[in-house]
Nucleic acid binder design. Sequence first.
DNA 1: AGGTTGACCTGGACGC
DNA 2: TGCGTCCAGGTCAACC
Length: 300
Amino acid sequence: MPELPEVETVANGVDARVRGQRIERVWTSGKPQTFKSSEAEIAEALTGARIERVHRVGKTVVMDLRREGREMQIPFGNDSQESKDGSRGGVGQSMAGQPASRQFLVHLGMTGRLLVSQPEVPLPLHTHAVLSLGDGREVRFVDARRFGRLSVVREAGGYAGPGEEPTTIGAEAFGALFKGRKLAIKAALLNQSIVHGVGNIYADESLFRAGIRPRKQAERLTKAELAGLHAALQQVLAHAIELGGSSVSDYVDADGVRGFFQLEHKVYGRAGALCLNCGSALKKIVVGGRTTVYCPRCQR
DNA sequence: AGGTTGACCTGGACGC
DNA sequence: TGCGTCCAGGTCAACC
């Protein structure tokens, strides 16, 4: 299940392989659920565009596209994702008055993979999109469970994602996100419109490292707990990115290589096993509709 | 409006 | 062996 570190690994891998390439042709599978923008809109936006760079926003892989010659002002009516008030930082170098370039958004869902392949390599089962590049290689989006989503957006300042970026947010701002929030802290971490990029693995792992009960109401965390959670989350995410993410189920990077952070999991997937800190049996509960593992002794 | 729940999907693990 | 059942979870719509 790709979360922030896995998506970052994928985005970096794809970026290193395809940056600067021109997209010559686009094929899509016709599975409607996969396409948040219409397939025609995606094909129109990608065909003939150059890939300026590939990066990550939240759990989304973002491909910046550049048109050769003039970026025509095509009235593209329903760019449904309206940009937010723009107060958030971002690398918004869109000059005033100029139309923002389009971006191709790839959300991997649960089982989505973004592969860069030679054309003679047979298409994997469940391939939903193929971008044929100028040098003959292909970018392939493969997604068995079809929770992944492809779309095209054009936002001034670039796609910002639904929530705050957890890897760079400061401790103060992080703590403020949970003021007046009555939901469980774990549910808050999973809520992408609060912070984006955190999923089930890193929510459980950061709460364990911070010693906080997943069910504790977000607004009831003390200042010290919020500071501890902020530090734990950033540390866990940074470490996981270093190790290429967690490979559970069938996550692999752009080369089909697995990550290694799963070896560092202290609670995720370890229900019933002994806490590595105190030796108590780890408990499994459901929070925010998600399986949650925690140590009843270390997490208060 | 904030919070909660279930549907969407399919492959893999498990039990009989 | 093979079949049925359950589980995994990111996101969104629907509901409370």
